[in-house]
């Protein structure tokens, strides 16, 4: 299997300038690789830095030290030092972030939200709409909701729209931030099979799952985040 992600001696601390300049160290010395076809689960108690690690990998948080190399098309890109234009390019084709929350765009219908990644990728509108409809149906979103903007949907429905949007066009590297939180058993099964399909298609996934069942079924490997956590600075 080929590696798609290489994390080397990654560290992160937050400096709060407006609260007395206090410095909060969160992660230090984080090193691991993820290969194509793997689903890596981050393990550790709340506050250990699991979400911080995912956000660092996505370039949403700025690294304090270390390297995050992502294999993008034909070359390695270090997210920690790449300029914004390069990070956006990697996000467009290679790296995606699946959160449990839908960032609602006012007035855009659920179907359009789900099909957007395909249209941006160059797929014809009709075909993209058909694929989006299939995906919404698979995640048990009732057809009468497809033409409505999700702002008024229930939390669970919004979450499923977000999953539909995220998995409709899978990327080589996918970051999953509790995508199954608060889903019922039936929809959890759908997400587990979506993860499995992405793995079989060659994606490398890394995720946070609080659900024991999902962890056991979806994960191929587990990393204990606490072994990376650095001790409180003296």
């Amino acid at each position: 299997m080929t590696d798609l992600v290489r994390v080397t001696k990654l560290g992160k601390s937050f400096t709060l300038h407006n609260q007395g300049g206090v410095c909060l160290p969160v992660l230090g010395g984080v090193s691991f690789n993820i290969a194509s076809g793997e689903c890596l689960v981050l393990h550790g108690p709340s506050g250990a830095g699991k979400s911080t690690l995912l956000r660092l990998l996505y370039g949403n948080y700025k690294c304090s030290e270390g390297r995050i190399e992502i294999f993008h098309q034909t070359r390695w890109v270090d997210i920690a030092t790449a300029d914004p234009r390069e990070v956006l390019e990697v996000r467009r084709h290679t790296l995606s972030y699946v959160s449990q929350f839908l960032r609602v765009i006012p007035r855009v219908s659920a179907l359009d939200i789900v099909k957007e990644p395909l249209v941006v990728g160059g797929m014809a509108n009709n075909l993209a709409a058909t694929r989006a409809a299939d995906m919404l149906a698979r995640l048990n979103i009732p057809e009468r909701l497809w033409s409505l903007a999700p702002a008024t949907f229930s939390g669970g429905e919004q979450q499923r729209v977000n999953i539909a949007r995220s998995f409709i066009s899978i990327t080589p590297v996918m970051l999953l931030d509790e995508p199954t939180a608060s889903l019922d058993a039936e929809n959890r099964e759908v997400v587990i099979s979506l993860i499995e399909e992405a793995r079989k298609a060659g994606s490398a996934l890394i995720g946070i799952f609080h659900d024991e069942l999902v962890r056991e079924r979806a994960a191929t490997r587990r990393i204990d985040i606490q072994s990376f956590t650095i001790a409180e600075a003296a």
């Binding site: 937050f14 400096t15 709060l16 300038h17 407006n18 956000r55 370039g59 949403n60 948080y61 700025k62 914004p84 990070v87 956006l88």
Partner: peptide, 21 residues
């Protein structure tokens, strides 16, 4: 300056931290 989501979610400068908070 930087990626919009990074500047807003992990602001580095004291003034940006004040602005986002």
């Amino acid at each position: 300056q930087g990626l919009t989501d990074q500047v807003l979610d992990d602001p580095q400068h004291a003034y940006t931290q004040l602005l986002t908070s």
